[in-house]
Amino acid sequence: MAGAYCQFCGHRCFVYRVLADGRGCHLATCLRGMAHDRKVCGQDHTTARNPHAEADQ
């Protein structure tokens, strides 16, 4: 299967989110990946904006 795999869990655990500064990116959903995202981006997938959820409203 093609695609990026998480360096922390070995799965494709990413979801698309928009950070507070407006950048869109893929963030990890595993615990170690989330910790890395918080360190690097200041947010993880639970705190960044989910543009797909907004489209459903």
Rank of each mutant, 00 (worst) to 15 (best):
M1G: 14
M1W: 05
M1E: 13
M1C: 08
M1Q: 09
M1N: 10
A2I: 06
G3S: 06
G3P: 06
G3T: 10
A4K: 15
A4S: 11
A4Q: 15
A4P: 01
A4H: 10
A4Y: 07
Y5A: 11
C6R: 10
C6L: 10
C6D: 13
C6H: 12
C6A: 13
C6S: 14
Q7E: 13
F8T: 04
F8A: 10
C9A: 09
C9Q: 08
C9M: 08
C9K: 03
G10S: 07
H11T: 09
H11P: 01
H11D: 15
R12C: 09
C13A: 13
F14T: 11
V15Q: 15
V15W: 04
Y16H: 15
Y16T: 14
R17S: 11
R17K: 15
A20V: 07
A20D: 15
D21I: 01
D21H: 03
G22W: 01
G22A: 07
G22I: 04
R23E: 12
R23D: 11
G24K: 06
G24V: 03
G24E: 12
G24Y: 03
G24S: 12
H26E: 15
H26P: 00
H26A: 12
H26G: 07
L27D: 05
L27T: 05
L27W: 04
A28S: 15
A28P: 12
T29E: 12
C30R: 07
C30N: 11
C30F: 08
C30P: 04
L31P: 11
R32N: 13
R32K: 12
R32D: 14
R32W: 04
R32S: 14
M34W: 00
M34G: 13
A35P: 01
A35N: 08
H36R: 15
D37L: 01
R38E: 14
R38M: 07
R38W: 02
R38P: 00
K39H: 08
K39T: 11
K39E: 15
C41I: 02
G42M: 04
G42A: 08
G42Y: 07
G42E: 08
G42N: 08
Q43D: 05
Q43S: 13
D44Y: 02
H45K: 01
H45D: 04
T46N: 12
T46P: 00
T46D: 09
T46M: 10
T46G: 03
T47N: 06
T47E: 14
T47L: 03
A48G: 13
A48I: 02
A48V: 05
A48N: 10
R49H: 09
R49Y: 07
N50F: 00
N50I: 00
N50G: 00
P51N: 05
P51W: 00
H52V: 01
H52G: 00
H52Q: 07
A53S: 10
E54K: 07
A55V: 02
A55L: 06
A55Q: 07
D56K: 13
Q57P: 01
Q57G: 14
Q57K: 10
Q57C: 04
